[in-house]
């Protein structure tokens, strides 16, 4: 009996040590692709202020969300929509308001009026929030009466996983198994300058409106209470397309915001 317990404990130790989170990986991939699209000026400023790449700090906001100092940022990760895809302000408890606020505050040389520590925190927040606003589960439709966009659970490897948790913990490893950030960059950073410019056109509010419209589809592709591997192949293929597009949008828009801030 003791032997069995030791065996189980050893197996658990191995499994937990290798566990990976979707959220971290996708954020890092978005940051890494964005890093490749920074102008020389923006890259120099990134190195000066962050002392690291955007990819390195892509999940920083998740790390500090639990601290008292950054407690208010806990509500800056997601965007909620009404039935007409209008994002809900909710007294500033949304990602869009703060992406716009920081961008406006820092652009046109505005960053020069801020102290270094504020610039550092702002860059880390932007890196995470621009990625987060493109995650399907961070586009929420709580105020929408339609049952199609209510949160539900599916089965992943036999375990019940809720909508939000699915996107935060398992999805990327399912859609692109064993991809590193370099793999994401190699496979997804393939758009032409014209296509990238089209993605970056507009304001965070307009990007949110587009997400609000597009992110309804994933809710219809995943079938509630069904094992992921048993869902129709065309649904998974379409879901992969959506994930890839959202990563591209997040990455190119992040680079666009940072480049604009440090434009001389």
């Amino acid at each position: 009996m003791k032997l069995r317990l030791v065996l189980v404990a050893l197996c658990l130790a191995f499994v937990s040590a290798e566990a990976m989170a979707w959220s971290g990986l996708t954020h890092n991939a978005i940051g890494h692709i964005a890093d490749q699209h920074l102008t020389p000026e923006a890259k120099a400023k990134r190195n000066h202020y962050l002392n690291h790449t955007l990819a390195y700090y892509a999940s920083w906001q998740d790390e500090v969300a639990w601290s008292k100092e950054y407690a208010e940022t806990r509500f800056w990760h997601a965007v909620r929509f009404d039935a007409k895809n209008r994002f809900q302000y909710r007294e500033g408890r949304n990602a869009i308001t703060h992406i716009s606020r920081i961008w406006n505050e820092m652009r046109n040389g505005g960053y020069k009026k801020l102290d270094d520590s504020t610039i550092v925190v702002n860059l880390k927040l932007l890196t995470h929030m621009v990625g987060d606003m493109h995650c399907p589960s961070h586009n929420m439709y709580d105020a929408d009466p339609s049952p199609k966009v209510k949160r539900f659970s599916i089965l992943y490897k036999g375990k019940k996983v809720y909508w939000h948790k699915f996107w935060d913990s398992s999805a990327s490893s399912y859609f692109h198994r064993k991809w590193t950030c370099r793999d994401y960059q190699k496979n997804l950073d393939v758009l032409t300058p014209k296509q990238i410019a089209k993605i970056c056109k507009g304001t965070p509010e307009q990007w949110a409106k587009q997400n609000g419209k597009d992110m309804r589809e994933p809710y219809t592709l995943l079938i509630p209470h069904t094992e992921l591997s048993e869902m129709p192949a065309e649904n998974i293929a379409r879901m992969t397309e959506i994930v890839d597009l959202q990563i591209q949008r997040g990455a190119y828009r992040l680079a666009h915001v940072i480049n604009d801030i440090f434009k001389e």
Partner: peptide, 19 residues
Amino acid sequence: LLRHYGFTADMYAEELAIS
């Protein structure tokens, strides 16, 4: 070290070079 999911060795080396 496992916190930076998806990083490759050369990506991490770049971080060390910057910092």
